[in-house]
Design a binder for these strands. Structure first.
Lengths: 232, 232
DNA sequence: AATCCCATTTGCGGGAGCGCAAATAAAGCT
DNA sequence: AGCTTTATTTGCGCTCCCGCAAATGGGATT
C-alpha cells in the first residue's frame, strides 16, 4: 500500500479531520501497516500500550473480560475507527482486546511517533477529545439501556445500532454483514445466549428477522424492531 | 475569591496539570465564579453548552434522564472535577444534568474563552483526553458490573467506590459525607429503591453498614463489603 | 403539639430471565 | 464421506428481583 492510498484512507478518519493533505501524507508515512486475519487479536487486554491503531478495513470487536473470565463486548469497530490510542496517550495498559471479525488491515504508530504527530498537528488532540467524547456518550446510553430496559428491548436496540453502523441493504431487508453469534449478542446486551436464542427464534417465526445459522442476520422489518426497542 | 486563591484551586485540577503558575493565573483570571446551593442544577440536559465548569468545592451528582423519564446517575463529582467541558468542545448540547448535593462553588469559562485557553496552553487538550479517557474506563467498568454481577454485589461495589472517592474516616468506619437516598443508590446500581432498602436493612442488622434515615451512611465493615462485591 | 409530607420499610405475589441439560443441526477436519 | 467439534434450540424449574400496596417513622411546617 503506497503513501497515496494511505493518505486517501486517512482523509476519512475522524482523528485526523482538519489536516491538510500534505500533513495527512506525513501522518501516513509515519504509519506501519499491520494486516490481520479473522479471529486474530491486534493486542491483548493488559498489554503495554506501545502502539496506537486505526482500522483501514475489516471489522473488529472490542472485548473486555472480567477477572472471573466473563466477557463483555464493548463495541464494534470498522474502517476509520481508532483503537488503543487513548491507552497510548494515558500511558496505561490496553484495557480491552480487539478481535478481528474478518481479514483486514490496520495502520499503527508507536507511542513516541504518535506523540510527535500530536505535537506537530494540534488538531489531532482536539479530534481525539471529540472521538473519545463520542464513546463516553455511547457508553452512557448503553448503561442507561441496561439499567432501564428489558432484554427484548435491548436486543432490538442493539440490532438496530449494528444495522446503522454497518448494515447493508439487501433485497429483503438490512443485513448485518459479519458473523454474529448468539453469544456475541448476549455479551453485547448483558444477557445469556439462551435468552438471545429464544428471542431471535420468536422474531424469526414472526418474520421480523431472518437468522439462520449459516448466513448473516437480516432485519426484515426494521420498523417493527424499532417499536419493540421503544415500547417501554 | 481572589485570583491567588483561584490559582491555588486550579493547581490540583487534572485538566490543568503541567501548567506553570503564571499560566494557571491566566486561566484563573479568565474564569467566572458560580456559586450554587443544594439541589440546584448548574445546567440542564439538553441545554446549549455555552460554558464549561470546574468544581471548586461542594459535591455534585450527574443525572441522565431517559425519554421516558427514568433517571440514571452517571457519576458523582467533587472539587477539581470538570463538568460539561467535553460538550463545549464537541459543540453538542449538554447530555446530562449536574445537581448539587450541597452548597458549593464552580468556576466557569465560556466556550470561546475556553477555546482560546486550549489554544494558548496545549497541555490542556492532552489532559482533557486523559480525564475523558478515565471516564470511559469508569463507564466500561460499570457496564461490566451491571452486565455480569448481581444487585447485592453492585450495591456493595458502589458503596466502596463512593467511600474511595469521598469517604471520611470516622470513629466506627467510613462515612459517605453527603445525602444518599435509597432512590439515588438504586439509580446508581440499576435496581429499584425497594431492593436497595431491603439490602441495606439486611446489612444494617448484620452490622456491615449503619444506615439510619437521618444521618449519613457509615460503612462499618468495609472488608466484609468487599467480600460481598467480589464473591461471584 | 399537631399535622403534613416524604423517605423508608416490609409483606406478598408474580414474572422475567437465568441455568442446567439434552437434543439437534451445522460446520470443520481428515 | 464419516467423524468430531461447536453453535443453536428448546424444555423445565427455579431464583432473583421487581412492582404493588400498605404501614411506619422522621423531619419539616404551621
Amino acid at each position: 500500500m503506497d503513501i497515496g492510498s494511505r493518505t486517501e484512507l486517512l482523509r476519512s478518519v475522524g482523528l485526523f479531520r482538519g489536516l491538510e493533505r500534505e500533513d495527512l501524507a506525513a501522518v501516513a508515512e509515519a504509519a506501519r501497516e499491520q494486516p490481520f486475519s479473522r479471529d486474530e487479536t491486534l493486542f491483548s487486554q493488559g498489554d503495554d500500550a506501545t502502539h496506537g491503531f486505526v482500522v483501514g478495513w475489516g471489522r473488529i470487536r472490542l472485548d473486555k473480560v472480567t477477572p472471573e473470565g466473563q466477557n463483555v463486548v464493548l463495541r464494534h469497530m470498522g474502517p476509520g475507527d481508532m483503537i488503543g490510542i487513548v491507552a497510548v496517550l494515558r500511558r496505561i495498559p490496553f484495557p480491552a482486546t480487539p478481535v478481528a471479525l474478518e481479514d483486514g488491515l490496520a495502520l499503527s504508530w508507536s507511542a513516541g511517533r504518535f506523540a510527535e504527530l500530536m505535537n506537530r498537528f494540534p488538531p489531532i488532540a482536539l479530534n481525539a477529545i471529540d472521538v473519545v467524547g463520542g464513546r463516553v456518550e455511547e457508553l452512557q446510553r448503553r448503561l442507561q439501556e441496561v439499567a432501564t430496559q428489558r432484554v427484548e428491548q435491548r436486543i432490538a436496540a442493539t440490532l438496530l445500532r449494528l444495522a446503522n453502523q454497518s448494515g447493508r441493504k439487501v433485497e429483503d431487508g438490512i443485513e448485518i454483514p459479519f458473523a454474529l453469534s448468539r453469544q456475541d449478542l448476549a455479551e453485547m446486551t448483558a444477557t445469556t445466549l439462551h435468552t438471545v436464542s429464544r428471542t431471535l427464534s420468536a422474531w424469526d417465526s414472526e418474520g421480523i428477522v431472518e437468522s439462520r445459522r449459516s448466513s448473516h442476520l437480516v432485519i426484515r422489518r426494521p420498523h417493527r424492531l424499532a417499536e419493540i426497542a421503544e415500547h417501554a
